[in-house]
């Protein structure tokens, strides 16, 4: 009896927390006229995918999506590639300034983007790359690199030293040991770091707002918000459909790759 009551209570709380997201999905499949019913209907009386059709074919949504995909993939590949080498160096090599460097990484991981953004804006204008996806990739490394480096460092600290030593005794060079021994061991960590970096870039808003003001280079975050501002009367069902579509990659990651996410929680997202 007590068990059932506890389960009921727990699930009520879970559903209340998830309600805004459930409501988003429900709103996105309601016909426009049903939104303005008073009192509102909970279950749609009629399910329609009209908003999704319009979103995909009559708005620049697909263009924004393409931009977001290119942007997040490039940022992730660049950042995780560079950070894997860097983390390996921070964990396995000894040289002066190594500890300081690790501290600096943690410090930069906490830096507010509003401090960096104005100089970065000037830099992009000066380099002549303002208003392009390239400028965003460069700017995104400023928060993604410290993050990835910190996360990968904690993953790699978990790989026993003996593995590399054994390979070295067998006559491998340090680079061979890195590719043959460390990389396979670090792979799960690299995958979850990539996932987190991808999500971080996918959701970024401030840099995109400041650095890009043409549709051709706008990612989803600022793109969808511009659809809210530019329409005269706000079409909530269209915006909810856009929100659902925007969350699809997250849902996929959650459903398929969850074990990598939980691994990431343990390693570095929060240490304690």
């Amino acid at each position: 009896m007590k068990r059932i009551a506890f389960n009921l209570m727990a699930w009520t709380i879970v559903l209340v927390t998830a309600f805004p997201l459930i409501w988003m999905v429900i709103t996105s499949v309601k016909p426009q006229f049903e939104l303005f019913r008073i009192p509102p209907t909970f279950w749609p009386e009629e399910i329609t995918f009209e908003h999704y059709r319009r979103l995909l074919w009559e708005t620049p949504f697909l263009l924004f999506m393409r931009n977001s995909l290119i942007l997040s993939f490039s940022t992730t590949v660049l950042v995780v590639g560079v950070a894997t080498l860097g983390a390996h160096s921070l964990v396995r090599f000894r040289y002066p300034g190594r500890e300081r460097l690790a501290q600096l990484v943690l410090f930069t991981y906490l830096l507010p983007s509003v401090v960096l953004i104005l100089p970065l804006y000037l830099m992009m204008v000066w380099l002549g790359v303002a208003n392009s996806l390239l400028s965003l990739v460069i700017a995104y490394t400023s928060f993604a690199l410290p993050y990835a480096l910190w996360l990968l460092r904690s993953f790699m600290q978990g790989i026993p030293d003996d593995l590399e030593s054994a390979a070295l005794v067998d006559g491998a060079t340090r680079m061979e040991a890195f590719f043959d021994v460390i990389l396979p061991q670090a792979l799960p960590g690299i995958i979850s770091t990539s996932l987190f970096t991808f999500i971080l870039s996918w959701n970024e808003y401030l840099y995109a707002l400041v650095l890009v003001n043409t549709d051709s280079a706008r990612p989803l975050t600022t793109g969808v918000m511009s659809m809210l501002v530019s329409s005269f009367n706000i079409e909530w069902s269209l915006l909810m459909a856009a929100s659902v579509m925007m969350s699809v990659p997250l849902i996929i990651i959650f459903a398929v790759l969850q074990k990598y996410l939980t691994r990431g929680f343990g390693a570095g997202g929060v240490k304690g």
Binding site: A18, M225, F254
Partner: peptide, 15 residues
């Protein structure tokens, strides 16, 4: 429970 944390702020705000 974890989903709100991973969803984009833009989505959270619109909703």
């Amino acid at each position: 429970i974890l989903f709100p944390y991973f969803v984009s702020t833009v989505v959270a705000v619109l909703v």
